[in-house]
Amino acid sequence: MSIRVNDTEVPPPDDARVSLLDLLREHLHLTGTKKGCDQGACGACTVLLDGNRVLSCLTLAVQAEGREVRTIEGLAGANGELHVLQRAFVERDGLQCGYCTPGQICSAIAMAEELRRGDPSYVTPDIAAGPAAVTREEIRERMSGNLCRCGAHNGIVEAIELMLAETAA
Protein backbone atom coordinates (compact mmCIF):
# COMPACT_ATOMS: atom_id res chain seq x y z
CA MET A 1 0.00 0.00 0.00
CA SER A 2 1.31 3.45 -0.84
CA ILE A 3 1.05 6.70 1.08
CA ARG A 4 -0.61 9.64 -0.65
CA VAL A 5 1.48 12.75 0.04
CA ASN A 6 0.14 16.03 -1.36
CA ASP A 7 -1.77 14.14 -4.09
CA THR A 8 1.21 11.96 -5.06
CA GLU A 9 1.44 8.24 -4.26
CA VAL A 10 4.71 7.30 -2.59
CA PRO A 11 5.90 3.88 -1.40
CA PRO A 12 6.27 3.26 2.34
CA PRO A 13 9.83 2.89 3.67
CA ASP A 14 11.35 -0.59 3.96
CA ASP A 15 12.42 0.09 7.55
CA ALA A 16 9.44 0.30 9.89
CA ARG A 17 11.38 2.57 12.26
CA VAL A 18 11.27 5.53 9.83
CA SER A 19 8.99 8.24 11.17
CA LEU A 20 6.55 10.01 8.89
CA LEU A 21 8.61 13.15 9.54
CA ASP A 22 11.84 11.54 8.32
CA LEU A 23 10.03 10.06 5.31
CA LEU A 24 8.85 13.54 4.34
CA ARG A 25 12.12 15.35 4.96
CA GLU A 26 14.86 12.83 4.20
CA HIS A 27 13.25 10.50 1.66
CA LEU A 28 10.90 12.87 -0.19
CA HIS A 29 12.88 16.08 0.43
CA LEU A 30 9.73 17.88 1.54
CA THR A 31 11.65 19.96 4.07
CA GLY A 32 8.82 22.38 4.81
CA THR A 33 7.74 20.15 7.70
CA LYS A 34 10.21 20.85 10.50
CA LYS A 35 11.92 18.68 13.11
CA GLY A 36 11.91 20.57 16.39
CA CYS A 37 12.07 18.23 19.37
CA ASP A 38 11.41 14.87 17.66
CA GLN A 39 9.56 13.75 20.79
CA GLY A 40 6.09 15.25 20.63
CA ALA A 41 6.72 18.36 22.68
CA CYS A 42 6.80 21.24 20.17
CA GLY A 43 4.35 20.72 17.27
CA ALA A 44 6.78 21.88 14.54
CA CYS A 45 6.25 18.59 12.65
CA THR A 46 2.44 18.88 12.51
CA VAL A 47 0.90 17.58 9.26
CA LEU A 48 -2.63 16.65 8.21
CA LEU A 49 -3.38 12.91 8.11
CA ASP A 50 -6.73 12.28 6.44
CA GLY A 51 -7.49 15.89 7.34
CA ASN A 52 -6.67 15.54 11.05
CA ARG A 53 -3.66 17.26 12.62
CA VAL A 54 -1.06 14.82 13.92
CA LEU A 55 2.61 14.87 14.92
CA SER A 56 4.68 13.33 12.13
CA CYS A 57 7.62 12.74 14.51
CA LEU A 58 5.61 10.25 16.60
CA THR A 59 3.89 8.64 13.60
CA LEU A 60 5.68 5.73 11.98
CA ALA A 61 5.56 6.24 8.21
CA VAL A 62 4.14 2.73 7.77
CA GLN A 63 1.16 3.80 9.87
CA ALA A 64 0.25 6.23 7.09
CA GLU A 65 -0.07 3.50 4.44
CA GLY A 66 -3.30 3.90 2.49
CA ARG A 67 -3.88 7.31 3.98
CA GLU A 68 -3.58 10.87 2.78
CA VAL A 69 -0.89 13.19 4.12
CA ARG A 70 -0.95 16.93 3.48
CA THR A 71 2.04 19.10 4.32
CA ILE A 72 2.76 22.82 4.07
CA GLU A 73 3.96 22.22 0.46
CA GLY A 74 0.48 20.96 -0.46
CA LEU A 75 -1.59 23.92 0.71
CA ALA A 76 -1.16 26.49 -2.06
CA GLY A 77 -3.40 26.38 -5.12
CA ALA A 78 -2.32 24.90 -8.46
CA ASN A 79 -1.27 28.33 -9.71
CA GLY A 80 0.79 28.95 -6.59
CA GLU A 81 -1.86 31.05 -4.90
CA LEU A 82 -1.30 30.93 -1.15
CA HIS A 83 -3.82 29.32 1.19
CA VAL A 84 -5.96 31.90 2.98
CA LEU A 85 -4.11 31.19 6.25
CA GLN A 86 -0.69 31.52 4.62
CA ARG A 87 -1.73 34.98 3.40
CA ALA A 88 -3.08 35.83 6.85
CA PHE A 89 0.25 34.85 8.47
CA VAL A 90 2.05 37.28 6.14
CA GLU A 91 -0.49 40.01 6.73
CA ARG A 92 -0.58 39.71 10.53
CA ASP A 93 3.14 39.02 11.09
CA GLY A 94 2.50 35.54 12.45
CA LEU A 95 6.19 34.62 12.43
CA GLN A 96 9.70 35.74 13.07
CA CYS A 97 12.24 33.00 12.32
CA GLY A 98 9.60 30.87 10.59
CA TYR A 99 10.69 27.50 11.94
CA CYS A 100 7.41 26.70 13.70
CA THR A 101 5.27 28.25 10.93
CA PRO A 102 4.51 25.18 8.76
CA GLY A 103 3.36 23.30 11.86
CA GLN A 104 1.35 26.28 13.10
CA ILE A 105 -0.41 26.61 9.74
CA CYS A 106 -1.25 22.91 9.31
CA SER A 107 -2.42 22.81 12.92
CA ALA A 108 -4.66 25.88 12.59
CA ILE A 109 -6.28 24.61 9.39
CA ALA A 110 -7.40 21.46 11.20
CA MET A 111 -8.37 23.52 14.25
CA ALA A 112 -10.78 25.53 12.11
CA GLU A 113 -12.46 22.29 11.05
CA GLU A 114 -12.71 21.14 14.70
CA LEU A 115 -14.39 24.46 15.52
CA ARG A 116 -16.82 24.05 12.64
CA ARG A 117 -17.76 20.65 14.03
CA GLY A 118 -18.43 22.22 17.43
CA ASP A 119 -15.78 20.18 19.29
CA PRO A 120 -15.19 21.56 22.81
CA SER A 121 -11.79 22.45 24.24
CA TYR A 122 -10.50 22.42 27.82
CA VAL A 123 -11.51 26.10 28.23
CA THR A 124 -14.99 25.75 26.72
CA PRO A 125 -17.32 26.72 29.61
CA ASP A 126 -20.13 24.32 28.65
CA ILE A 127 -18.57 21.06 27.47
CA ALA A 128 -21.89 19.60 26.33
CA ALA A 129 -22.93 22.65 24.31
CA GLY A 130 -19.51 23.24 22.74
CA PRO A 131 -17.83 26.56 22.02
CA ALA A 132 -20.30 29.45 21.95
CA ALA A 133 -17.79 31.98 20.67
CA VAL A 134 -14.32 31.71 19.21
CA THR A 135 -12.49 33.75 21.81
CA ARG A 136 -8.73 34.37 21.84
CA GLU A 137 -8.64 32.10 24.88
CA GLU A 138 -10.23 29.31 22.80
CA ILE A 139 -7.71 29.80 19.99
CA ARG A 140 -4.72 29.88 22.35
CA GLU A 141 -5.83 26.69 24.11
CA ARG A 142 -6.52 24.90 20.82
CA MET A 143 -3.12 25.96 19.45
CA SER A 144 -1.15 25.13 22.60
CA GLY A 145 0.42 22.12 20.91
CA ASN A 146 2.45 24.43 18.68
CA LEU A 147 5.24 26.31 20.44
CA CYS A 148 6.89 29.43 19.03
CA ARG A 149 10.20 30.31 20.65
CA CYS A 150 10.24 33.75 18.96
CA GLY A 151 7.06 34.65 20.78
CA ALA A 152 5.03 35.40 17.65
CA HIS A 153 1.91 34.00 19.32
CA ASN A 154 -0.03 37.28 19.22
CA GLY A 155 0.44 37.55 15.46
CA ILE A 156 -0.37 33.86 15.04
CA VAL A 157 -3.66 34.24 16.92
CA GLU A 158 -4.50 37.33 14.85
CA ALA A 159 -3.74 35.48 11.61
CA ILE A 160 -6.05 32.66 12.68
CA GLU A 161 -8.77 35.15 13.59
CA LEU A 162 -8.39 36.70 10.13
CA MET A 163 -8.71 33.29 8.45
CA LEU A 164 -11.80 32.42 10.49
CA ALA A 165 -13.38 35.77 9.63
CA GLU A 166 -12.58 35.43 5.91
CA THR A 167 -13.78 31.85 5.61
CA ALA A 168 -16.98 32.59 7.58
CA ALA A 169 -17.87 35.46 5.26
Partner: peptide, 19 residues
Protein backbone atom coordinates in the same frame (compact mmCIF):
# COMPACT_ATOMS: atom_id res chain seq x y z
CA UNK B 1 -19.74 12.30 31.87
CA UNK B 2 -18.47 15.89 31.43
CA UNK B 3 -15.55 15.14 33.78
CA UNK B 4 -14.22 12.64 31.25
CA UNK B 5 -14.47 15.00 28.28
CA UNK B 6 -12.77 17.80 30.23
CA UNK B 7 -10.02 15.47 31.49
CA UNK B 8 -9.29 14.22 27.97
CA UNK B 9 -9.16 17.78 26.67
CA UNK B 10 -6.76 18.72 29.49
CA UNK B 11 -4.30 16.11 28.24
CA UNK B 12 -1.50 16.68 25.73
CA UNK B 13 -2.37 18.65 22.57
CA UNK B 14 -5.00 18.36 19.84
CA UNK B 15 -2.44 16.66 17.57
CA UNK B 16 -1.62 14.03 20.19
CA UNK B 17 -5.28 13.50 21.12
CA UNK B 18 -6.01 12.75 17.45
CA UNK B 19 -3.46 9.94 17.57
Amino acid sequence: YPVLARALLAGASAQIRNM
